[in-house]
C-alpha cells in the first residue's frame, strides 16, 4: 500500500491539454482580478476622474477655458444649483423608504402568500411594464389625470367632495413622488421577492412549531434572511432615483428640479464643467449613501451576499 502510494506520487502526472492549463492559469489572484480591475478602471473610473477634473474648468462664451479654477464650483452655490443636490437626496431617500414600506409586504405576499402560479406570473409580468414602456409616454398620461381639469379633480367636484380643483395634484412635489412611485416599485420588489422566495418554508414552519407568533417569525426569521434582497432593492432603487429626470420634468412643472434636470439644463447651454460638477455631486452623494448603508447593515450582512440568491 505504501509502495503503491509512493509510486503514485512519484509517477509523472499525465500532460493536460494546453487549453485546460491556460484556464487553470487564470486563477483570480494571477490574472482575472488584475484584468478586471484594469478594465473597470478604464471603463468606469477613468471617465469619472475626467468628470471630476473637468469640473475645475469653466465656460466662457460657450467655450471651455482650459485653466484650472474653482469658479464652476462657486457658481453651483451662487446659482442655487446646490439646492437641487439636497432636494434630490431628500426625494431619493424619501422615495426609497416609501418603496421599501410598500414593496416588502407585497413581495412577502407574492413569494409566500400567493399560491396561484398563474396569478403570480401575471403579477410579475405586470411589474415589468415600466422596463419596456418609454418613461415619457408612461408619465405624461398622469397630467391629464392629475391636472386641474383632469379626471381626479373632475370626479371630486362632481361628487361634491371639493368645490374647486386641487392644484397640488400636479406640478408639485406630491406629483413627482407619485410619478416616481410606479417607476421604481419593481426595482424594489424584485430583489426582495427573490430573497424571500428562496427562504425554505421549513424554517417558517419550524418557527411556528416552536411557538413563535407571526411577528416573531417575520422579524427573527424572514427579515434577516431577506436582508440581502432588501439591501439590493435599496441600492437598485436609490441609484436610479438620484438620476431621475422624466418625472420631475413632466410632473414637477419646473418647480421640482432634480440633479438630472440641472445637468440637462447645463448641457443644453454647453456648460460642460457645470454638468461635470453636478455629476461629481451625484457620485459623491451615492457613495456616501452606500457607505452609510454598509455601516448600518454590516453586523448582519455583507454587500456580497446580495448575490447569494444567484448562487443558491
Amino acid at each position: 500500500m505504501t509502495s503503491l502510494s509512493r509510486s503514485d506520487t512519484s509517477a509523472p502526472s499525465p500532460r493536460r491539454p494546453f487549453a485546460k492549463r491556460l484556464l487553470d492559469g487564470l486563477s483570480p489572484s494571477r490574472l482575472a482580478v488584475p484584468v478586471f480591475l484594469l478594465s473597470w478602471s478604464f471603463l468606469v473610473l477613468a471617465p469619472l476622474v475626467v468628470i471630476v477634473l473637468f469640473s475645475f474648468l469653466q465656460v466662457k462664451a460657450y467655450r471651455v477655458v482650459y485653466v484650472p479654477t474653482l469658479d464652476t464650483w462657486v457658481s453651483l452655490i451662487d446659482s442655487g444649483r446646490w439646492m437641487t443636490a439636497v432636494r434630490t437626496l431628500r426625494i431619493g431617500l424619501t422615495m426609497t423608504v416609501i418603496e421599501l414600506l410598500l414593496a416588502f409586504p407585497f413581495a412577502l405576499w407574492l413569494a409566500k402568500g400567493c399560491k396561484s402560479k398563474t396569478f403570480k406570473s401575471v403579477i410579475i409580468t405586470l411589474l415589468t411594464i415600466p422596463f419596456f414602456l418609454d418613461a415619457s409616454s408612461r408619465i405624461i398620461v398622469w397630467r391629464s389625470i392629475l391636472g386641474t381639469n383632469g379626471a381626479i379633480n373632475t370626479a371630486l367636484m362632481s361628487l361634491g367632495i371639493t368645490d374647486s380643483p386641487i392644484d397640488w395634484l400636479l406640478y408639485s412635489e406630491f406629483a413627482v413622488h407619485f410619478g416616481l412611485l410606479g417607476t421604481h416599485f419593481p426595482t424594489m420588489v424584485f430583489p426582495i421577492f427573490m430573497s424571500i422566495a428562496l427562504i425554505d418554508d421549513d424554517y417558517i414552519q419550524a418557527s411556528q412549531d416552536l411557538g413563535a407568533g407571526p411577528a416573531q417569525t417575520l422579524f427573527n426569521i424572514i427579515l434577516p434572511m431577506a436582508l440581502p434582497g432588501i439591501v439590493a432593492g435599496i441600492v437598485f432603487t436609490l441609484v436610479p432615483l438620484m438620476a431621475a429626470f422624466v418625472e420631475p420634468q413632466l410632473l414637477g412643472g419646473g418647480f421640482v428640479d432634480l440633479l438630472g434636470n440641472s445637468v440637462n439644463s447645463a448641457l443644453q447651454q454647453l456648460k460642460y464643467p457645470t454638468a461635470a460638477a453636478l455629476s461629481t455631486v451625484v457620485v459623491a452623494l451615492l457613495g456616501l449613501c452606500l457607505v452609510v448603508l454598509i455601516l448600518v447593515t454590516r453586523k448582519r450582512h455583507d454587500m456580497a451576499s446580495m448575490f447569494m440568491a444567484i448562487r443558491r
Binding site: A61, S79, G80, R81, S262, Q269, K271
Partner: peptide, 19 residues
C-alpha cells in the same frame, strides 16, 4: 440669441428655478 452676458443670465435663471 447669443447675449454677451449669457453665462450670468443662465446662472441667475437657475436661481429662479431653484427658489
Amino acid at each position: 440669441v447669443v447675449p454677451d452676458n449669457a453665462d450670468a443670465m443662465e446662472e441667475e435663471w437657475q436661481r429662479f428655478l431653484n427658489a
